[in-house]
Nucleic acid binder design. Structure first.
Lengths: 238, 238
DNA sequence: CAGTGGTCTAGACCACTGA
DNA sequence: CAGTGGTCTAGACCACTGA
């Protein structure tokens, strides 16, 4: 099926995934137990266990002790979205990356700051506004808050050669992030900064990042709608 | 660290992931070989192999025979985006879902159809245009092409009670999908259908789906920008 | 050609939990 | 309390591939 002589592992995996994806084993269907699969494929239990554990990790099946393994009930499509660093993204387009720092300030965190960073935000924050260029056109406006309790070094860091996002990635062990993607019209200020007409459609990506449950940073990247898009790939069987 | 008595597996995993995420082992760093980790943790090779294979599957490390295992170089943030079925999405909002079929036709695939479906498209397609409601407001406009060679049953299927996306999910074994997300202004026709002003920002999600390398369907879902957003979560260590 | 990872075996003991 | 999955062991042989 998939080129190269597949390992036994892959053979079993694709047969089971195929039955699920084809609907032969519908959601809720009980799939054979490990002992039965061992007998069917003439292999050891570790081999089928590895396959089933992987399918469970992907959500294609659910496993319950004593009860057995079942085809997952809700097969909502999920996709892996790469959210690259701005500079890498621009360079991947073959364009020179450049950044202006529009504003930078350290302040006691306001109620709005704490709401934006989320539960557990520290008392002081660094607020940054940057404009990223891809060649001549503006690629994005970055509006970022960094929790100085979580990242004290940020207070004195120079963000001239490296985008704040990349700096944080290399200085802070993040552990969790949440993204929200929306289409918004540019207000007057944003339109001026992006070089588009007021009201023009923009793609807005909000990201909040935590480190062991405490906020690290919250950022809003706003891209001009024309010519910018996010791409996500998905392959349930791999 | 993570509540419950963790398995040896999880212990090793979190120690290695911690060193990578904390920067102690920077990108490109060569991590201990399996034999060394076996000695360090006093466990069998299968146990460390399982951990390293899982870290490699997530992209946190790269493994090369003879050379060893290395901390991944590009830690671009990636996020898991759930792309639910429209009906499930609307119902999750606590609103009644309803759908109009605006147009439905079967035709010999045009050059544009083939370009949209991608390499390997069949000779005939079903084109569908639907309008999805979440209560009174329009939730999305669906513009879909289904390859009738890949899914002949679609030609006679009634799509009155089930959105085409859900119908396909339950009838066709898909294997791969690609998504493109962009912000676009509503043109006059779209504005009329969505009930927004011409030029209003809309979130447009294009999805193409393949089954063993051959196109199944291509769909464009366009959502009014106000009040609609996509959410993605990410946890590098899990 | 030797070092490293890829895969597999044939067991074992245990943890859950539902018939 | 018996069936099922979770995890682990101590090996084995092989496939790559870079020193």
């Amino acid at each position: 099926m998939s080129g190269q002589s597949a390992s036994l592992n892959e053979t079993i995996r694709s047969e089971i995934a195929g039955r699920i994806l084809s609907g032969e084993w519908p959601p809720g269907h009980r799939i054979p137990i490990e002992l039965e699969l061992m007998a069917a494929y003439g292999c050891s239990r570790m081999t089928v266990n590895k396959v089933l554990a992987a399918l469970a990790a992907e959500g294609l099946i659910e496993r319950r002790r004593r009860a057995g393994s079942f085809v997952g009930r809700q097969r909502s499509q999920s996709a892996v979205l790469d959210i690259p660093d701005v500079r890498a993204e621009v360079k991947a387009l073959g364009l020179p990356w450049r950044m202006d720092i529009l504003a930078r300030s350290v302040r006691r965190s306001t109620a709005a700051d704490r709401a934006r960073l989320g539960e557990g935000a520290g008392p002081r924050v660094l607020a940054l506004a940057c404009r990223h260029f891809a060649g001549a056109p503006v690629h994005a406006i970055e509006d970022r808050l960094i929790d100085l309790e979580a990242v004290p070094e940020a207070e004195t860091a120079e963000f001239d050669a490296v985008p704040p996002g990349a700096w944080l990635l290399s200085h802070v062990p993040w552990s969790q992030a949440e993204h929200r993607i929306a289409a918004v019209p540019a207000d007057d200020a944003l339109a001026g900064l992006l070089g588009v007409q007021p009201g023009a459609a923009c793609l807005q990506v909000d990201r909040r990042t935590w480190r062991s449950g405490r906020p690290v940073t919250a950022v809003r990247m706003t891209h001009p709608g024309d010519g910018y898009s996010l791409v996500a790939r998905f392959a349930p069987g791999a």
